[in-house]
């Protein structure tokens, strides 16, 4: 048990800046470009959100048969079909959203980011194998990025690992969490349910507070709900976290016909990230035990309180945002 405490304390101490500012990221370097089809194959485009360093520095590459000189984009008879990319991503521009409105008024959005540097416009024909492979690469990467950047999701999983400890019960618990978030992710992405983002984020923070309290209970020798029925807690809060995962897909303007596949690949990415994290935590716990690197008894409860404090800090911050918006 001491090895666990040492691990949690070290992880929290090292990741404290990340935990305190989970949303710092790189939103300032997002740009939005919109194209509107004026006649078949001919588009007029403009930046609705300008890149930080000006539009002229962006090396936007359209399909080879298209001719681009903003505001004009001419793709001829083939139309806007094929790959789009930005060559100089990663310096001053982290992501760009390209919105294309066709003659019939339908708008599709494509996100180009470092995780997803090439996007494929499908056109009206049936998707090819290449298209599916690109779709898989794009959304698996997006899923991995989303879980790795989601400090709150990872902290919740860390809390579950701590309470359940390991072995078969941990496998069941993590699977239950996966089932929970997969169901709600799908339901949200298909539009069957909808929850406003701000209160949802507050609930996610509250779920970690709950786990923190459960850890303290466990340390005091009480058997909490999570220790007794870990899979119930995992599946319940998994449902909440899944709606949060869906926020990563919202706003990308996915085409309806590729939504199920994109969802599947995104979920696979989330699982890969989650499994990597669980394996890393288990490896570190083993290493701490092997080295006998433990926290002295006077600091035994510090990690549990650290988890509780960080999550409560998040909860209050998010609650303020909810109240401010109301």
């Amino acid at each position: 048990m001491s090895g666990w405490r040492a691990l949690i304390l070290v992880l929290l101490a090292l990741a404290a800046p990340l935990l305190a500012r989970p949303a710092a990221a790189h939103q300032a370097t997002l740009a939005v470009l919109e194209f509107r089809e004026m006649r078949p194959g001919m588009y007029i485009g403009r930046w609705t959100t300008l890149p930080k360093d000006g539009e002229n520095r962006i090396e936007l590459k359209m399909p080879a048969h298209c001719f681009l000189r903003l505001p004009e984009l001419n793709c001829g008879d083939k139309g806007l079909v094929g790959q789009m990319t930005i060559a100089n991503l990663g310096e001053d521009l982290s992501a760009a959203i390209i919105r294309v409105t066709s003659l019939d008024g339908e708008t599709k959005s494509y996100t180009i980011s470092a995780a997803n540097p090439v996007v494929t416009v499908l056109g009206t024909g049936a998707p090819t194998l290449q298209t599916w492979l690109e779709l898989a690469r794009t959304y698996v990467n997006l899923g991995i990025d989303h879980i790795l950047l989601g400090a709150d999701h990872l902290l919740f999983v860390l809390g579950l690992i701590w309470i359940v400890k390991g072995g078969w019960r941990l496998f069941q618990t993590i699977t239950a969490f996966t089932v929970g978030h997969s169901v709600s992710l799908a339901a949200t992405a298909f539009g069957w349910i909808g929850v406003p983002e701000a209160p949802l984020n507050a609930c996610i923070a509250l779920s970690i507070v709950f786990v923190g309290v459960e850890i303290v209970k466990q340390q005091r020798g009480e058997i909490g709900l999570t220790a007794r029925y870990p899979w119930v807690v995992a599946v319940s809060f998994g449902l909440v976290h899944g709606i949060g995962f869906a926020s990563a897909l919202a706003g990308l303007g996915l085409e309806r016909r590729i939504l199920p596949a994109a969802l599947l690949f995104f979920n696979v990415g989330v699982e890969i990230g989650q499994i990597l994290f669980v394996m890393l935590v288990l490896a570190l716990i083993w290493a701490h035990r092997r080295l006998g690197a433990v926290i002295p008894s006077w600091g035994a409860e510090l990690p549990a309180y650290a988890i509780g404090s960080v999550s409560m800090f998040w909860f209050l911050g998010r609650l303020v945002r909810v109240l401010a918006a109301a």
């Binding site: 090292l14 490896a283 290493a287």
Partner: peptide, 25 residues
């Protein structure tokens, strides 16, 4: 962001050194 970069660097140092030491042991 220097604080985040430092936290990342220290985390990597902690993970690598802890795992390698335990494996060697």
């Amino acid at each position: 962001d220097r604080l985040l970069y430092a936290a990342g660097l220290a985390s990597a140092g902690y993970v690598v050194i802890t795992l390698v030491m335990a494996l060697a042991l």
